[in-house]
Amino acid sequence: MLKASLNAYDVQVPELRIKTATPDDLDGARAVMLDTVYRDFGTGYVPHWHRDIIDMEGAYLAPARHTLLVAVDERDGAVVATAALDSRGPAHPPNPRWLAERYPSGETAQLRRVYVRPEYRRRGLARRLVGELLDFAAADGGYRAVYLHTDPAVPGAEPFWRALGKVVCDEREEEPGGGSRVVHFEVPIAC
């Protein structure tokens, strides 16, 4: 059912190809990611949060249960979107202890770095990437949950994830008037 809902929003764009990243794609993927954390998040590169952006090979290419997908514009070979999955659950701290216990590392597929360059948005590309990640998680056979967190201040992020999953913790409600603004989601694994 989730797969069908992902495909229902799929806009075919023939010049865009989604593929598993290779070492040759990492510079382009890194540029998309860094542009996103500087432009959309406004934080810039923070080593504690973004270490995987620098070592994508160690974070996503080398481990068998992890993956990094890229969307490439075949007209010029540019990486225009990224999406990653790893087997690390949310850490405590900074996340609530109960959340880390609910989504333990090894059993949890965490979606990360689902970023699309602004000029390629609103074409169904992020949904296609997420669909591929969910297929990867299902094929692995060892994941019992798919988890992610997002910053709702990023335009479009919260409604996008609400359309695909369910909120399991909205830290804005946990800490009214301050603290974190992170929203945590669970997305059904593709069947």
Rank of each mutant, 00 (worst) to 15 (best):
V32R: 04
A139F: 07
A83P: 13
I54Q: 03
G77A: 09
V182F: 02
A91C: 12
G131D: 03
A109W: 04
T20I: 11
N7A: 14
D24T: 15
G178P: 06
N7F: 13
P94F: 02
L111P: 00
G179L: 11
G177I: 05
D10M: 08
E101Q: 11
A83K: 03
F41E: 10
G142K: 03
E74F: 08
G141V: 10
Y9S: 11
A137S: 09
E174W: 07
A100K: 02
Y115C: 15
R39G: 07
K19I: 11
E171Q: 15
G44N: 09
R123S: 08
E74P: 00
A59V: 03
A163M: 06
V187W: 01
W49E: 12
V11E: 15
H184N: 14
P47Y: 06
R102F: 00
Q12A: 15
D52P: 03
L68P: 05
A62R: 13
A29H: 02
L85C: 07
G44D: 14
A78D: 12
A59H: 00
V182N: 04
R127N: 09
L16F: 09
S87E: 14
P63W: 05
V182C: 13
T108G: 04
T108P: 07
Q110Y: 05
A8E: 12
V187L: 14
V146T: 12
N7C: 09
V46N: 01
R51M: 06
P63L: 06
Y45R: 12
D24H: 13
D52K: 02
